[in-house]
Amino acid sequence: MTKQGIIYILLLLTLLAILSCERILTSQDPENSPTNNFEILWDNLDRKYSLFSTKGIDWDSIYQAYRPEIHENMHNSSLFETMGRMILELKDGHTDIRSNLGHIEYDYTTGYRKNFVPHIVKVTYLGPKEKERDGMLYNIIDTVGYLYIGSFTTEITEDGIRDVLDYFSDTKGIIIDVRHNTGGNDRYTKIIVNHFFDRKRLVEVNHYKTGQGHDDFGSIDRYIEPKNGLGIFKPTVILTNRYCYSACNSFVSWMSALPHVSLVGDTTGGGGGTPHFSELPNGWIYRYSANKSYRPDGLSMDDGIPPDHYVTITKRDSTRWRDTLIEYALDLVNE
């Protein structure tokens, strides 16, 4: 064979190797078996879940408790139920699992009063003059502005919040009611908060994972600095209950950093860690708290934000179609 022929053959072999070596180089999808699905779930949470130490959870002992229940021939519903129970051990509203079999999530409101009767607010305080903008409901009660924000999932625009706050321009103070607001997008909370801040302030310290160990964290301070805000420095009262969670929890925490803001109601639900989604080879989707946050005073935001004034709805007020928290807030503003 000539020298040129050898070169041709070598080149051809090299090209064939390059064209087909993807199969050699790439790994394969993980096996879809009950054992493997369980192991992937446990291992991913072991490396990435952020609240083991904060909550005092021994994740290895949880593995020891649940792993014996897993076997290759188990039914999907049993596997889902076992994984769900394991996840519930974390007692975290941001950690759940869902599939075509259902949705298993921790109820962080267990043992707390609702402290909110929507139809009383609707009839007595919003009334026929109720206005709506970007999902926010508002009205003026005597000389105090009342704003109900039921969710931070609906987009709240800069124009929207400006319209609302402009409407309250001649009021003595503002009540912002976030009861039963289970969170949403931090971006919308910032749009609102911006108008109440007087200067740059430290609002929380975010802890992110920097390694696979349960205590491997680095921290980044988070500030809010007002930009072209309306400068609302009049007395402001935030009404809270246990159902206020995640982005709502952050909203309450950030607003509580301001001297002209008071919190009335109950401790919020928490949810300080940003939830992160992932999935298993069988298609089930789960999420977990991937980081954690602390208030500037060092308190974990996952424990919820305690109110300045602990107030619950009384039976007497309920029967008179009165909301005790709103009445208390009106008195605070009018003091």
Partner: peptide
Amino acid sequence: PSLGAIIPE
């Protein structure tokens, strides 16, 4: 991204 956030480690 880092382990649990889009911010690099």
